[in-house]
Design a protein around this nucleic acid. Sequence first.
DNA 1: CAATTACGCTACTCCTCAGTAGCGTAATTC
DNA 2: GAATTACGCTACTGAGGAGTAGCGTAATTG
Lengths: 216, 216
Amino acid sequence: MKGSESDARVDRSAPDGQRPGRPFDHSRDALVLSTTLDLLAERDYDRVTLDEVATRTGKAKTTLYRRWATKDDLIVAAIRAAGRPPEVDDLPDLGSLRADLLAVVDSPWLGGSARRLAIFLNLASAARGSARLAPIVRAEVTEPYVDVYRRLLERAVERGEVSAGLVPRIPLLAAVVPAMSTHALSAGSGPVERSHFVAVIDDVVLAALGVVPPRD
Amino acid sequence: MKGSESDARVDRSAPDGQRPGRPFDHSRDALVLSTTLDLLAERDYDRVTLDEVATRTGKAKTTLYRRWATKDDLIVAAIRAAGRPPEVDDLPDLGSLRADLLAVVDSPWLGGSARRLAIFLNLASAARGSARLAPIVRAEVTEPYVDVYRRLLERAVERGEVSAGLVPRIPLLAAVVPAMSTHALSAGSGPVERSHFVAVIDDVVLAALGVVPPRD
DNA sequence: CAATTACGCTACTCCTCAGTAGCGTAATTC
DNA sequence: GAATTACGCTACTGAGGAGTAGCGTAATTG
């Protein structure tokens, strides 16, 4: 569609400091992007308005549009700015599968489990309605996260903690924690407690793998 | 807020045939309600418009508003018209837990698994944005469905198919199939195949319960 | 200093969509 | 027939929200 594939509207070739005129104020870009994710944790995609991003960050809406051409571009930039889960590059290794799974649950990625779940839900429903967003959400959010679980399970097999015969079930079981917790947030009335994650891990994932949870 | 709690705007006390004037044409009410659910299976709640319900059913939008006061009322009526899952009153009993679980998966409720899942997702996101809809969706859709799974698991314990020690895990395990399948639809790119349901039942639910699936 | 570019602001244009007004007409009861 | 009420239609109001125009001002380079 557009000439360029980048999210940013501004794409001057000069490295920004070599030009005449007032330079961009990038000091609050991070604030804008995290505020966008805040709103996406609170409301549905359609109810996130750029007017509100503007007032919350103290920037003018017109300034936002000078940097991101459309609302979708801003959302995509916010997703990208959040980055992949840190566990992708630094797989937890606490000695037991159970401890490793809990480490992922307790990951600070996207602001911790509560904010992360809310963002998951709203991004997922946004993706369902936008062919542009769908692949990005999948590639940047859903898949990397599930992949961390998958790798933990695979490593548990290598360690001998889980029977090798269960390898074919790993892709499915890797989705159990994300699926059950988003469902709990979506169908339940309140926030998802940590005890719920623990129960999912012990009573569903580890139980299905035949691992006796070493309860402390 | 309103004087009455009913969905319908029209609430004349006379039983409709005892009045002068042209009577209501109820012959296509069912079509309107099922078309509303069709749209809710295709799109997000916010993108379901009464204009489209009107054109698809061949009724005038004004006529719809004569019968249902607001869009929410129409949605609620459509949900209620779909009724509870038939399994609530007629729990499948095919001899094995596995067969019973599959029977629920294959239930025609809400038009079969594909339409049912799509409606689940969109109703859930609608519920998140509307305090009015949320309790109704939970009471009429989510809870009855999960409850069917719960009762099947409880009965498997009574039958001796599942160890009695696992009873405390039943409420959690009852949500596994709905959670995993909505997640698959939401995070995946295509429709959810029946083989996915089978894998969830065999490799997650039955595995977590220590039941050896009698694969055929 | 002049030129240039970003920012904040107010105000605007479009568009979509919930919900309504009013009219002519169709189907009833008496 | 008269009265009454529902239907379909076109047209409208009003709110919300994406995205823009234009202006005065702030921060740079030269």
